[in-house]
Structures are given as structure tokens and as C-alpha cells.
Design a protein around this nucleic acid. Structure first.
Length: 855
RNA sequence: GCGGUCGUGGCGGAAUUGGUAGACGCGCUAGCCUCAGGAGCUAGUGGGGGCAACCCCGUGGAGGUUCGAGUCCUCUCGACCGCACCA
């Protein structure tokens, strides 16, 4: 008996050998087709987690599989290395963000290498390195020149204690996450990328991404939120201006009973200057929490400006103009007309203000005179009533007529509005890519000359005070204006880290090039053939990358339309949670079972197991990948990651499941190291089917069917099924009898299984390949091809039903006809018994599938 | 509220896409073996009935279409996810 499989030694040996041989270097042979597989690169938080293991295992399976299929494969890795946690570490522990980040990268690189990933490490980069962000600044200038960059005032979350702008996710219950101070809405000058310019393109191109999950495309569609409607002008009484409003329901215009402005609408601001009560109301709205819950709690409130606007279709009709808390400034025009009868929000507001409710759409089949609106607005289809020239028209026709009439009067026309807003990329932080712009008192906004790039982050910064270290650095921001030569200041904003991740996929094609994206190196690889990552990036990262690709194309950097032609979103890795009576969380390795009860390992206090949830530090339900790899080896971890659940679904991490994966690894090794039958030497070729005994013939068919099945499963990302198939084959091989001819079949079976396992458990497979007497790299061996002649059985088993219930199975030649099947079915005892005393009315025969006898 | 996904043994899941439900694995049961290991081997394992051959029930629930439904349709219950005053 051979000794136990020593995963750690085997894995370390092959990892070193692969690296030394440079097997995974991505090269453009020109002769083979290219394939670019990419997993979302990690944030260097400190250590890899199980989500990374799952993500990178899947990507590695694809990379190794495609290599075996004859592709030149690009499979790179890098680091999404800018971001706030590095600054928090600096603030809390006094370590410089760069030092913290590069230290984490070193640790995590080592951990990833332990996984045996077939990555081209020569292309590795970190986005915080000037060699990367220098090019990002150049791209920013290109975008600026192309008119895609804009500096404008925007409402932001301002933390008055930390003196910084906060992202929405850093505002918890209306307070800054670190200072705890109530966040204010402030208007500040910010840098924006004009993603809205591409709103329609980004929307329409979703249809050209068939290899993206429907769910993601739908989420992006909703995020862009295109809606068609009308722009309407309401002349303001006593003022020489008109209020512009966007609506999707111009057909309900005759039901209007008020207009309302957002608290931040310019007209509201202007009116507030001479109306202290209004000013107070607006302040109140801006101070109120920005969370939806807060708004819900506040209810619909408004302040009557005293102004009245004229109805565009009936000059004699005027409507009150309010400022209302529920009107959003960043959607449409920041002002609405309210038709309470057919919009729930307007109805709520109208009821609270005592405004009239005029039904103007009659639901189908109802009497126009009897239409009444209670507490629920009618938003459905119907026929226009109480609407002058629109009366009798269906909703869609009424919309068209209303728009035409508005255009005729010069009081509006059709319009499209989007939920998508321009991308504010300014962050008042240190650890990010500096925005290469200078602000000059006389010249305004001036780009930094290209020869001065990169604008480097200063290293001598302090984090002991709140606010932006770049802004308070003694010298860094002071510079001269590139245009007039006068004193000027640099923009002290850095870029949102989503900018960094919006083009890294392209940079991997030419990671060290001295221009951002040299076409000869970049074009053969792009777009990414298969992108893999978490669903949490369904909108932002993936939408920004799509926008960036269009912008890069506009500026001549790439020729592609879309960054990722295939996208796969994997599920999360979950684990049970453990808490004691006081609500304290415990890590899985801090609890154990004693006398059938879960207790804390340390003090034996009882612990209850809660539901399985996504692994997170806060719930302490994480399992450290490195510990698993040290205990069982990377192959076991990889196998488990793939085998227990479909990849798009959440995976429940269980210790027993991991042990099961380990058992398979060890058992497979045992079978290869000491096979149950003697193997002929390698290279003898496939055994001749005709000479074999029936069980060996069947086994060979099974081998070739497994190849076909696993191939299809891998192509379709059904890794769990692929694993199940190889396990089935392994079970069959281990049951082989020592009969004449068994040796060659066993060799064929083992070699096939090893090749099929290559992408999944690469170290075990490589070791087994050598053990079987080969001297080549399994990692470079071609994928097996099934023999088509062996895919079809010569005998098939067909179920026989009587009135739809299975009564027997019959064996038939594979090429049987209907009559044959019917005859065999009728002869079957179970069928005859079930038919006793009944009259056969019909027999349905689907050859190879089923016989159904109907009585 | 709007949009979406999903409900299959004790558990994770499979089912040639309308054709033998429960592959593969975990767990469990019984037995064997042993240099007592993170073992290994054999058999069994949806529920119920029967000595047995077999029979009945069974894919969240209720209907429907069909020779035939886990799969399609309608309603319903439940879980999860995304968006959320988007005019």
C-alpha cells in the first residue's frame, strides 16, 4: 500500500516547477486563438477570504481548460489597491497607507500562490503604483479634452467633524460612520465624468451582451432608468419665467392641481432669499436624514410659495406652487406637476394640503361619472375624461395628443429622462489617484501638462488630524498655473477607486507599457472573454467599466465596444453563525460539540447555531483559507469550492464537505498509485473495443461519455456536475475486475480522469500524470476528445408506462423502431399485469425514451 | 410599493430541457478490516405497506393543459435579492 497523499509537499513542488518553467506566461503565438479570462481583482485588505478562493478557483478552471483546448490564454492578477481602509489603518495604527497596502499585497500574493492558480504573475500590478496611475491621469486628460470631464457644483454628504465628504455608504443613520456627527448636505465643486452622455448607448448595448446574466442586465437597465415623457412649461404668474417640469403622464395634465419644486431648486433658493419661513423649511429638508426611512418617517410635507402657475392648456386655470420635500432635485428638472388622482405621491400630498383631486382617466368598463378616488390613486390604463380635447382617448393616444398640443403652443414637447446621473469621482482623501488638474484664479481649470505626469502623491503626510491630508500638506498643492505661470493650486481631490477598476482589465494586456494601452498588445486580447466576480458589482463597477470602454474608444485607446463579452456572477460563501446567550459571536473554530451540545471551546459556555450567512468578520463566521490549505491542501479547497453547489448560487461551507473532498483526493491518488489492475506502459493507444468483454466495453463507453459530459459542463459553467461526473467515473474505475484486457482500459480511464481533473485539482492531476509514467506537463496536455462511436450505447433501457405510471423497463437495441418497442413492452410481465382486463386504446412510443400504453 | 430569483430526501444538490425523480456528495444504519487513520472496504438509506414478487404516496400548496408535468399555464403560500417618493 502506498503512503498517504502528501498534498502540501506535492503542491509546493508543482507550484515551484510550473513557475520555473513559466507555463502560464501569456503569449501571443499568432497561431492559436486567444482567450482572456479574468476574475475581479482583490482589494488588498490583508488576507484572502473564501470568496476569493471560490472566485479564483472558477477562473483558474476556465483558464486551464481553455489552455488545454488550444487557446493562448491570458489570466492575470493585480490589486485594487487605493481606498479608504489604508487611510483608516494609518489613522488607527500610524502605519503609512503605502506600507500597509504593499504589506497586505505581499501576504495575499503568497496566499494566492498557494492555491496553484495558473496566473501570469509577470503582469501583476497595483493600482496605487505610479506606473499605473500615471496612465490613469493621462486617460483623465484625454477624457477632459474629449469633453467627458466636467467640474460642477453638487450636493454631497459633508461630515463637519472629519471635514470630509462621505460616500453614501459611509453615512449610517444620517451620521458620519467615524465621527458620529450628523451629516450635512453641502454644495461643493466636484469633478464628474459624463456617463449620462452614454445613457442610451449603455442601455441599448445590453441587448448585445447575451453572455451576461439576465439579472445583471436588468439591474443595469433599471439603474439607467430611461423613461419617456414630456417636458412642460408652466408660466409663473407675475414673473417673467416659466416653470419647467418633466412628466411621464402628460395625458393627466388636466388633472393637475398643483406644482412643486425640490427644496434645492434654483427658484426655491431664490424665493427663500425673501421668505424666511421658506428658507427655514428648506434647511429642515436638507438636514433631515437622507435615508429612505427618514424620508418615509417625515411624510410628505410642503411649503406654499404663494406663487401660482398657469395651466398650459387653460390659461384661466392657475395652480399653487409649493416647495415639497419629496421632489428630487437630481431627477428630471427638479420640479413636478401633481395629478393626485393618478399618482400615489401626489395624492398623499394633495390630501395633506387639502388640494382638489380630479379624475382624468376612467378605468375600462367603468362609468365616467362614477369614477372616484379614495386613498389609492388609479395608475392603470383607461380613457381620458374631464380633459377637454383629450376626452375619449386611450392613455397612450392621450399622451401623444397632449405632447403635440404642448409643442404647438410652445409650452413643451416630448422628452426623455434618466435615473442615471453623472459620475462624481471627487474624493477628498489621500489614498487615491490625484486628479491632474490645477485651479488658477485667472485661468480657471487648467489640466496638468502631460510631460509633468504623473502627479504623484506626496509621501510625507500625516493622519493625526481630520480632513484631507493632501489639502493641508504644506507644499504639495501649491504650484504655478501651466497657462499663465501665476500662482495656482492643484486639485486636492483624488479619484473614486471605481475609476482605477474601470480599465485595469485592459491594462493587463500590456501591464508595463509606457503608454496606457498600446494597440498591438491590447487588441488581440480584448474584450475579456470571460469575466467572473460577485453580483455585488452588478451595477457600479460593471457599468463604469462599460462607460470607460466607450470613452476609451472615443479617445482612440481601444477598438472594442464592450469590456466583457462574457460575465459570470458567482454566489457567496456562507457558513453557520454561532452566538452565546449574551449575543457574542464565535468563530467556527472557537466552538465544538460536547455531549451533543454546541459549546465555546474556551469556557464551555453554551452556544447556539444560527442560520447560515455570507461569511463576514462582523458575524465571525469566516474560515481562513490558508488554514484549510495548510490542513488539506489547495486541491481539496478547490474541489470543495466547485463540487457542492452550482457556482451562481451561495455555497455553504461545511467541514464535513471539505473532508469529503479530501477523501476523494486521497482515494484518487491511491487508485493511481496502486491501481487494482496492472497497467500497460504509457503511449500504447486506446484498446480495441471489439476485442473486449462486455463490462470493459461498457466501461470504455462510460469513459468517453464522461469526457463529453464534463466538456459540456465546463463550457456551461456547471462545475458541480462536472465534478459529479468525474467522481462517477472514478467509482466505476475502482470497481474494475482483473480480467483480460482490463489493464489498457484502466489506463485509458485513469489518464482520461486525470486530464479531466487537471483544471479542477491541478496539483493532484499533475502528480498523477507523472505517476502514470508521463514526462510531459499535464498543464500543457490537450483536452481529451471523446470517440463519437462510443458515445451511443448499443443497448438502451426504455421505461414502459401504463396510463403514465412506470410499470417496467425494457432493454432494446439503440436503433429500435416503434413497433419493436411496443412489442417488447407488451410482452413485459409487469405491463401485462397492469393491463389485465383493460382495453388498450393507444400506445405512445418515443424510441429511446418511453413507451406509454393508454387504456 | 416596483422589479427579479428560487422552493426537489435529514442536508448540499442532479434530472438528457415535457419522457425511468432523487445522479454525485454529505450525514446516517449495519457489518468487516486495521501498522487506530483526517482511515479503508461491503451493503443499505424519499415516505408508507408487504416474508416476497410487488403495491400505494411523493418535487411548497390548489387547480389546469398533456398519453405523460419537478419541468408549461393560472392562482396561492413562503424564502431571498435588487431598486425604492425617479414624477
Amino acid at each position: 500500500m502506498s503512503e498517504r497523499y502528501d498534498a502540501q509537499a506535492v503542491e509546493a513542488r508543482w507550484q515551484a516547477a510550473w513557475e520555473e518553467a513559466g507555463l502560464f506566461r501569456a503569449t501571443l503565438s499568432g497561431a492559436r486563438p486567444t482567450y482572456y479570462v479574468l476574475e475581479m481583482f482583490p482589494y488588498p485588505s490583508g488576507r484572502i477570504h473564501m470568496g476569493h478562493v471560490r472566485n479564483y478557483t472558477m477562473g483558474d478552471v476556465v483558464a486551464r481548460y481553455k489552455r488545454a483546448r488550444g487557446f493562448d490564454v491570458l489570466h492575470p492578477m493585480g490589486w485594487d489597491a487605493f481606498g479608504l481602509p489604508a487611510e483608516n489603518a494609518a489613522f488607527e495604527r500610524g502605519v503609512h497607507p503605502a506600507e500597509w497596502t504593499y504589506g497586505n499585497i505581499a501576504t495575499m500574493r503568497g496566499q494566492l500562490k498557494m492555491m496553484g492558480l495558473s496566473i501570469d504573475w509577470e503582469r501583476e500590478f497595483a493600482t496605487c503604483h505610479p506606473g499605473y496611475y500615471a496612465h490613469q491621469q493621462a486617460l483623465f486628460l484625454d477624457f477632459f479634452e474629449a469633453g467627458l470631464v466636467e467640474r460642477k457644483e453638487a450636493w454631497v454628504n459633508w461630515d463637519p467633524v472629519d471635514r470630509t465628504v462621505l460616500a453614501n455608504e459611509q453615512v449610517v443613520d444620517g451620521r458620519g460612520w467615524r465621527s458620529g456627527a450628523p451629516v450635512e448636505k453641502r454644495r461643493l465643486a466636484q469633478w464628474f465624468l459624463r456617463i449620462t452622455r452614454y445613457a442610451d448607448e449603455l442601455l441599448e448595448a445590453l441587448d448585445a451582451l447575451p453572455r451576461w446574466p439576465d439579472k445583471v442586465r436588468l439591474m443595469q437597465r433599471n439603474w439607467i432608468g430611461r423613461s419617456e415623457g414630456a417636458r412642460i412649461l408652466f408660466p409663473v404668474e407675475g414673473r417673467d419665467e416659466a416653470l419647467e417640469v418633466f412628466t411621464t403622464r402628460p395625458d393627466t395634465l388636466f388633472g393637475a392641481s398643483f406644482c412643486a419644486l425640490s427644496p434645492n431648486h434654483p427658484l426655491a433658493t431664490a424665493l427663500a432669499a425673501s421668505d424666511p419661513a421658506l428658507a427655514a423649511f428648506i434647511d429642515e429638508c436638507n438636514l433631515a436624514g437622507i435615508g429612505e426611512r427618514d424620508i418615509e418617517a417625515a411624510g410628505k410635507r410642503g411649503h406654499d410659495t404663494g406663487l401660482r402657475v398657469r395651466h398650459p392648456f387653460a390659461a384661466e386655470r392657475t395652480l399653487p406652487l409649493y416647495v415639497a420635500n419629496f421632489v428630487l432635485m437630481d431627477y428630471g428638472t427638479g420640479a413636478i406637476f401633481g395629478c393626485p388622482a393618478h399618482d400615489q405621491r401626489d395624492l398623499d400630498f394633495a390630501r395633506s394640503q387639502g388640494l382638489p383631486v380630479i379624475p382624468v382617466v376612467c378605468p375600462p368598463g367603468e362609468d365616467a361619472d362614477a369614477v372616484e378616488i379614495g386613498d389609492v390613486a388609479y395608475v392603470g390604463d383607461g380613457t381620458a375624461i374631464n380633459s377637454d380635447f383629450l376626452n375619449g382617448l386611450a392613455v397612450e393616444d392621450a399622451k401623444a395628443s397632449a405632447v403635440a398640443a404642448l409643442a404647438e403652443r410652445g409650452l413643451g414637447g416630448s422628452a426623455v429622462s434618466y435615473r442615471l446621473r453623472d459620475w462624481g469621482i471627487s474624493r477628498q482623501r489621500y489614498w487615491g489617484c490625484p486628479i491632474p488638474m490645477v485651479l488658477c484664479e485667472s485661468c480657471g481649470v487648467v489640466p496638468v501638462p502631460r510631460e509633468e505626469l504623473p502627479v504623484r502623491l506626496p509621501e510625507d503626510v500625516t493622519f493625526d488630524k481630520p480632513g484631507n491630508p493632501l489639502d493641508r500638506h504644506p507644499t504639495w498643492k501649491h504650484t504655478t498655473c501651466p497657462r499663465c505661470g501665476g500662482a495656482a493650486v492643484r486639485s486636492t481631490d483624488t479619484m473614486d477607486t471605481f475609476v482605477d477598476s474601470s480599465w485595469y482589465f485592459a491594462r493587463f494586456c500590456a501591464a508595463r507599457a509606457d503608454v496606457p494601452l498600446p494597440a498591438p498588445e491590447v487588441e488581440p486580447w480584448l474584450p475579456v472573454d470571460q469575466y467572473i466576480g460577485g453580483i455585488e458589482h452588478a451595477v457600479l463597477h460593471l457599468l463604469y467599466s462599460r462607460f470607460f470602454t466607450k470613452a476609451l474608444k472615443l479617445c482612440g485607446h481601444v477598438a472594442i465596444e464592450e469590456p466583457f463579452s462574457g460575465l459570470f456572477t458567482q454566489g457567496m460563501v456562507c457558513h453557520e453563525t454561532y452566538r452565546d446567550a449574551e449575543g457574542r459571536w464565535y468563530y467556527p473554530d472557537e466552538v465544538e460539540t460536547r455531549a451533543g451540545r454546541l459549546v465555546a471551546r474556551e469556557d464551555g459556555r453554551p452556544v447556539t447555531a444560527g442560520r447560515s450567512e455570507a461569511m463576514s468578520k462582523s458575524k465571525r463566521n469566516t474560515v481562513d483559507p490558508e488554514a484549510i490549505i495548510e490542513a488539506y491542501g489547495a486541491d481539496t479547497a478547490r474541489l470543495f469550492m466547485l463540487s457542492d453547489s452550482p457556482p451562481e448560487r451561495d455555497l455553504e461551507w461545511t467541514d464535513t464537505g471539505v473532508k469529503g473532498a479530501w477523501r476523494y483526493v486521497a482515494a484518487f491518488w491511491r487508485m493511481v498509485a496502486s491501481p487494482p489492475v496492472a497497467l500497460p506502459p504509457p503511449g500504447a493507444g486506446a484498446p480495441a473495443q471489439g476485442t473486449l468483454a462486455p463490462p470493459l466495453r461498457a466501461l470504455r463507453r462510460s469513459i468517453h461519455r464522461t469526457v463529453a459530459g464534463v466538456t459540456e459542463d465546463l463550457e456551461r459553467f456547471r462545475f458541480n456536475r462536472a465534478v459529479a461526473r468525474v467522481r462517477t467515473l472514478t467509482n466505476e474505475l475502482s470497481a474494475i475486475e482483473d480480467t483480460p484486457g482490463a489493464g489498457p482500459v484502466m489506463r485509458e480511464g485513469l489518464e482520461t480522469a486525470v486530464r479531466l481533473l487537471g483544471p479542477i485539482v491541478p496539483h493532484l492531476a499533475e502528480e498523477a500524470w507523472r505517476c502514470l509514467g508521463h514526462e510531459s506537463w499535464l498543464a500543457q496536455e490537450p483536452w481529451p476528445e471523446p470517440d463519437p462511436a462510443l458515445l451511443a450505447d448499443d443497448v438502451v433501457v426504455v421505461a414502459v408506462q401504463v396510463d403514465g405510471r412506470k410499470r417496467a423497463t425494457i432493454s432494446l437495441p439503440a436503433d429500435h423502431d416503434k413497433a419493436e418497442a411496443e412489442e417488447a413492452a407488451m410482452a413485459e410481465g409487469g405491463v401485462r399485469r397492469a393491463l389485465a382486463g383493460r382495453e388498450v386504446r393507444k400506445v405512445i412510443v418515443v424510441p429511446g425514451r418511453i413507451v406509454n400504453v393508454v387504456t
